[in-house]
């Protein structure tokens, strides 16, 4: 199994005619994702040309796209000024899952958009995230398909390329993945570590979990406590930003040590205190997962 997306995912791409939207739509279709619709206001009635002659209808608005195609998931590639609006439009359209790739959305816009989606019971992943991939089934977002392979490891991360690094080591060590989820680098994100842990915990095929965190906030600390109480499979953790200076935004809007809170040391201590194996180097993540799975199969 996998979490959040699989073969039954019917995807609508918001911003399908933009540079990033069109490029990644092709990539997602090549991977095998069912892209059933695109939305770009003013371009309704046109068609997006996918790989191998595939045609994707474009609509002016989300409600029309969902009504016509039965889409159940949306991915957003629209620019920051309009992205929060696109999330709220999607939340009103009937899809149950929204993946917001856009980086640079004002945080107060997101406070409103998250509240709006929460009220409607719609899950938002991101924003400022690489999306997610269930190897061999579907990918939504910008994660590269060639580095993943199906298998027993669930991975959740706040980062993009650092996720690629960790997955690359897992795949090379013969450790495939159920789903890899990038939850995003913003301070306000819709799907947190705990939500992914809960979903992986309910997935019988996920036999180990990797959590890749970074400085800023307390989500990793809360997730660590959740792991100890609710997760039965081994969990391996990594935290980026041990050398980050306090008070500086390290690329991601959410990666900032405020005062003395949100340091890497604090998060690594929380991991260790709650029985999560902490990798000191990215390459060590796969080594610890292999050791944990070996130990688990012996016992």
């Amino acid at each position: 199994m996998s979490i959040f997306i699989d073969e039954s995912t019917r995807l609508v791409v918001q911003g399908i005619t933009g540079r990033d939207g069109s490029f990644h739509t092709t990539q997602m279709m090549e991977y095998g994702t069912q892209v059933v619709a695109g939305v770009t206001p003013g371009k309704g009635g046109q068609t997006f040309e996918g790989p191998d002659g595939a045609q994707v209808p474009i609509f002016n608005a989300m409600d029309e796209a969902v009504a016509a195609t039965g889409a159940n998931t949306s991915v957003i590639y629209v620019p920051p000024a309009f992205a929060a609006g696109a999330i709220m439009e999607a939340a009103d359209s009937g899809v149950g899952f929204i993946v917001a790739i856009t980086e640079g959305i004002p945080v107060l816009d997101m406070a409103r958009a998250h509240a709006f989606a929460r009220d409607r019971g719609v899950r938002v992943l991101g924003p400022n995230c690489p999306g997610l991939i269930s190897p061999g089934k579907a990918k939504v977002g910008i994660l590269p398909g060639q580095i993943v392979t199906p298998g027993p490891v669930g991975l959740v991360s706040r980062s993009g390329t650092l996720t690629y690094e960790a997955v690359h080591h897992l795949t090379r060590a013969g450790l495939g993945q159920t789903t890899c989820v990038g939850i995003g680098g913003d301070p306000l994100i819709g799907t947190k570590f705990i939500d992914c842990l809960e979903a992986f915990g309910n997935d019988p095929d996920t036999r180990a979990i990797v959590m890749i965190g970074e400085i800023g906030g307390t989500d990793e600390q809360e997730a660590a406590a959740y792991v100890q109480e609710h997760i039965d499979v081994p969990v391996v953790g990594f935290i980026a930003g041990q050398t980050a200076p306090p008070g500086r935004r390290m690329g991601h809007a959410g990666a900032i040590i405020s005062g003395s809170a949100g340091t890497a040391a604090e998060k690594m201590e929380a991991f260790e205190a709650h029985g999560i194996a902490v990798a000191k180097r990215p390459a060590e993540i796969a080594e610890l997962v292999a050791a944990a799975l070996e130990g688990a199969s012996v016992s």
């Binding site: 991360s157 706040r158 980062s159 993009g160 390329t161 650092l162 996720t163 690629y164 690094e165 680098g185 890749i212 970074e214 400085i215 990594f238 980026a240 930003g241 041990q242 050398t243 980050a244 390290m250 690329g251 991601h252 990666a255 890497a264 000191k280 180097r281 990215p282």
Partner: peptide, 17 residues
């Protein structure tokens, strides 16, 4: 000189390591 914020932080950390 790294691509991606998370990998950039992890690279700095590995230099220190």
């Amino acid at each position: 000189c790294v691509n991606g914020a998370g990998l950039a932080m992890a690279t700095m950390d590995l230099v220190k390591y």
